[in-house]
Write a protein that binds this DNA or RNA. Structure first.
Length: 339
DNA sequence: ATTGCCGGGAT
DNA sequence: ATCCCGGCAAT
């Protein structure tokens, strides 16, 4: 279930290059997610093998809620701890772990991959990868129990489909950003973090999707706007029309706006900004912009000549005023019987 | 006088 | 945005 809801997620955390300095995470960016499921909020609890130490920074980051607007923009909102409104039920740690268990039972296995430059070490346990990083890359004593969590920055948890893995470990290669060939993830990072030498990211590798294609798809569309796979191709350049939107139709000189609402489509003449209602072009239009200095009232010299059609007032009469169109009732240009 | 509706005010 | 109306121009 989790797999189907979270086909692919890439979380990127990058930090200051000073390796042994503070643990402050400079920024956390959700590059993208192809799912709106809040399960992605807590992938560490899913993926980690249960080692509690040195993960506070991750959990604090991942517990930060994200918000999504209708336009598909995603942003971190660390102040709002509430779960966003999604069809999925609220996710607590327990439920997340349960889902995680079900996912793991579904031939998914969490592996730990060293992200140190030119190091492609993949181990099955977090302690193992931590020890590897501590001893090989950080130059600490491997026998020492001391760990300040520094290693967490240099390995990633990758979920591997063991079914496909059984076909050969080479299938794992596409999920690795440090393998030969154009890495699928780091080009994204290059925009924001040119040298992500200390990067931890978590990849949920889908069962039936190849990670590179998914990642490339993400990259080419919205590096920092997470959208669902459905909305990506259908994302219009402009806001979509709803039923109340107006469709502009070219009609003589003044635009005619058709308003989709209850009842028949009735053309509504509208006056654009700075545009007076224009007379019908086959009539005399000699009184344009007559400046009336004699009276305080503005000139109405540009008033449109009276049309030939009977209007609501004349058709229904004053006694049936309720039958008039709205415009006529408001003493506006008749909408029902246009000229 | 009647009709159409612009411009503007009130809510 | 919706509703109403004074007042002007055309008829």
């Amino acid at each position: 279930m989790c797999i189907s809801l979270c086909p692919s997620i890439v979380l990127l955390f990058y930090r200051r290059p000073s390796v042994h300095a503070d643990k402050e995470v400079m920024a956390a960016t959700v590059l993208t997610t192809l799912s709106t499921s809040p399960l992605v909020l807590n992938p560490s609890s899913c993926a980690s093998g249960g080692d509690a130490g040195g993960r506070n920074w991750k959990e604090s980051l991942l517990s930060a809620s994200y918000s999504s607007s209708t336009s598909g923009h995603w942003s971190w909102d660390t102040s709002d701890q509430s779960v966003p409104s999604t069809p999925s039920p609220p996710l607590s740690n327990d439920t997340g772990k349960k889902k995680c268990v079900s996912m793991l039972q579904n031939s998914m296995k969490v592996m730990f991959k060293c992200l140190w430059k030119n190091c492609e070490k993949v181990l099955s346990t977090s302690s193992g990868i931590q020890r590897h990083i501590r001893t090989i890359h950080l130059g600490r004593n491997g026998d020492s129990d001391y760990s300040d969590g520094e290693e967490d920055f240099y390995y990633s948890e990758i979920e591997v489909n063991m079914d496909s893995l059984s076909e050969g470990l080479s299938s794992l290669a596409p999920t690795s950003p440090t393998t030969t060939g154009p890495p699928p993830v780091f080009p994204i990072l290059s925009c924001e973090a040119p040298k992500p030498e200390a990067t931890t990211f978590i990849i949920h590798t889908p069962l039936s999707q190849s990670a590179p294609s998914a990642l490339c798809h993400i990259r080419t569309d919205h590096a920092y706007q997470a959208t669902s796979p459905v909305s990506i191709p259908s994302m219009p350049p402009e806001p979509p029309l709803n039923t109340e939107d107006r469709i502009s139709v070219s009609w003589q000189s003044p635009p005619v706006m058709y308003k989709a609402s209850a009842g028949p489509m009735t053309p509504i003449r509208t006056v654009s900004i700075g545009e007076k209602r224009q007379p019908v072009n086959h009539t005399t239009v000699s009184k344009t912009h007559t400046i009336n200095t004699a009276t305080s009232k503005p000139s109405v010299g540009t008033r449109k000549p009276r049309g030939e059609a009977k209007k609501c007032r004349k058709v229904y009469g004053m006694e049936k005023r309720e039958l008039w169109c709205t415009a006529c009732r408001w003493k506006k240009a008749c909408q029902r019987f246009t000229d």
